[in-house]
Design a protein around this nucleic acid. Sequence first.
DNA 1: AATGAATGAGTCTTCATTCAT
DNA 2: GATGAATGAAGACTCATTCAT
Lengths: 216, 216, 216, 216
Amino acid sequence: MNGPDNLIEEIFEHSDELTEKQKKIILAAIQAFAEKGYASTSTSEIAKNAGVAEGTIFRHYKTKKDLLYSIIEPMLEKFIAPFVLKDMEKVLNQKHATFEDFLRAMIENRIKFLSKNMLLLKIFIQEIPFQPELKNLFKEHIGTKVIARFTQVVEYYQAKGEILVAPPFNIIRFIASTIFGYLIFRNLLLPELDWDDKAEIEQTIQMIMHGISTQK
Amino acid sequence: MNGPDNLIEEIFEHSDELTEKQKKIILAAIQAFAEKGYASTSTSEIAKNAGVAEGTIFRHYKTKKDLLYSIIEPMLEKFIAPFVLKDMEKVLNQKHATFEDFLRAMIENRIKFLSKNMLLLKIFIQEIPFQPELKNLFKEHIGTKVIARFTQVVEYYQAKGEILVAPPFNIIRFIASTIFGYLIFRNLLLPELDWDDKAEIEQTIQMIMHGISTQK
Amino acid sequence: MNGPDNLIEEIFEHSDELTEKQKKIILAAIQAFAEKGYASTSTSEIAKNAGVAEGTIFRHYKTKKDLLYSIIEPMLEKFIAPFVLKDMEKVLNQKHATFEDFLRAMIENRIKFLSKNMLLLKIFIQEIPFQPELKNLFKEHIGTKVIARFTQVVEYYQAKGEILVAPPFNIIRFIASTIFGYLIFRNLLLPELDWDDKAEIEQTIQMIMHGISTQK
Amino acid sequence: MNGPDNLIEEIFEHSDELTEKQKKIILAAIQAFAEKGYASTSTSEIAKNAGVAEGTIFRHYKTKKDLLYSIIEPMLEKFIAPFVLKDMEKVLNQKHATFEDFLRAMIENRIKFLSKNMLLLKIFIQEIPFQPELKNLFKEHIGTKVIARFTQVVEYYQAKGEILVAPPFNIIRFIASTIFGYLIFRNLLLPELDWDDKAEIEQTIQMIMHGISTQK
DNA sequence: AATGAATGAGTCTTCATTCAT
DNA sequence: GATGAATGAAGACTCATTCAT
């Protein structure tokens, strides 16, 4: 995985269709949505912060909701991309001798992605309970593709006797909770603390793998 | 732990100061806030669902925000109550031979509480990023009291050699993430599934204690 | 003229029908109306300042406007009383050798009255443009009774050759303007200045009588 | 003095920035404020009378109060303009042999102005007791500039022995009261009468100069 | 007589969206 | 493509008034 992991930059780079103004609108919208929430952000405010006229927003996005989706959808797609790309095949099951290695690679890769796109993630998390369409996108993308693929992996290492034989979904949920818990504490709840990311992640992986008990 | 764990009922029971209408307002507000979010819920809608005039809301709550706080604050207080009560002393460190026992008691107790007050928890989680006052309440109540108490417990069992020697805060974060992860999956993301709570919680505890690796 | 010239006190003294609460309501209403204007004063505010329940006001005064009238009407009546009372006959035309003496007596008497009831006067002046009923009261009381009587006096001294032969109404207007001008500057526009009332009034009378020219 | 003395027309003429709708809003607001008072006029009413949507008002004026100020401020400025302009120098002290001539010129000039802008003056007078900002504007504009200039003139003619040696402020107050008294009677209290303005003003000037006594 | 909860019409203001330029 | 004036529905909140207690 190389190239800019920052979605916004990437989107901007790779698209000649986006006007300068449009870019400013997107940046202003992300900033505002993350800060005050979608519902509490007015389009006029976005326009002002973007330095464009109110009407300009609606030239590019039919509704305010369209603007929201146009911001979140690419993130979702980029996030799951590795899980569906042939290219990721290796990352997922071949290259790694142990599940722990796999987990480490996985986390490093996706955590970096999410950290770089924290604002987008925040918006997404905050709006998903209220936007059925987001929920659908989520179910479709994450629910089917990511979980399906992940299940394969879990089952593969279960078969190898490396990890607990439990419903794969439980294991995925456990891992996801721990990782997202880390991300939320680190970036949303206590961003002001000094975080030694490398050590923290390593310890998180250890706890995922071996729990907190000292008994074997 | 006995008595009604459902906060709303409890509040209603124990307060003669609340008018019948006031109760209806609170119920309607909780319903609406949880469903559509605070910002997207209009006071007129709350009034309609509560079967009262809009003005009635403002007779009891000076602002819409006041209504929000009056709903969330009691929950926070009730949630942390056990952690600060002398009464909880036993639950926390004496009665339990092992950390796992403690954890099991703890989870059972507080998970039941949160499950019964899921709507309130949902509102709280959703609004905390946007309401600085909620954030303060949270930091004050949870941050200081709950974490402080929890840290003692963790250190106690660490000293006994039962659990991993790592920064207590990391361990707390790990446990909290796993539990909240479970709650969120179970109640918010996939409430439509059939959940065998007892088994799920037991497995969650196992994963917290021993991780997912089969290696000792 | 003796006894309390302060209308409010007088009204309170002479009426056993007024409850203690009613008195508080009137005082609070006068205060508030004078300060913020009738339209910008809410009945709930009056109730709060009076220390009574909101409903209490409407037990005594059917509407907010009734409260306003019940405050202003007595003032108007008291103000014109001297002009219609037989008792005033002497003040008006007999006792005074010259118009200037009459004027002096008149001013001293009525200016004192208005100064003591400045808040009421202020309310009256402010509301008269918007309350047709106040305008009617005014026309009826002042327009007919006071001006009629004053016209007699003016004509009497004109006949005696003491004062300018001009339409009496012009003369009355001139005098009234000068006096009210003084009252308004003194009490409403620049109340914070130090006023030597005695000297000011004497000079005002001089200017009314002789103008400001040094030529005869 | 030439050109339109009617402020509203003048403002409309000289500003290309005002939309047609904006003009209608101002006219409707002036009409309504003068008739029912600022506090009793609703923005929805202004909108209806102006034939615009209510939102349109707030596009141009952030608040209802802004609308009020935007109406009154230009009047104040225009009113005092002659007193601060070099141009007025002549009117004020040079061209006039006597104070009476000066007074006549002055009155003619400013009375015409005020008469033509009576609605604005009415709004101003009515709102000044309740709007501290208006009071400040008034003190600043009239208090300092107009009175200062007027004081010079009075002292000049006092030195020439033409007019009474008394505190200039008293003389100004006397003149102002008489003139405003005339304006108020003529335009606000009894507009329905037939007024021979020329004669009335002349007589008013006479009374200002020589009082009402026939004794020298 | 006094209360104060309840009302619902009305207030100022905001907002997403449209459209002529 | 971009603007920004215009819209009118909707928002939070206020208010004078009523009425059961």
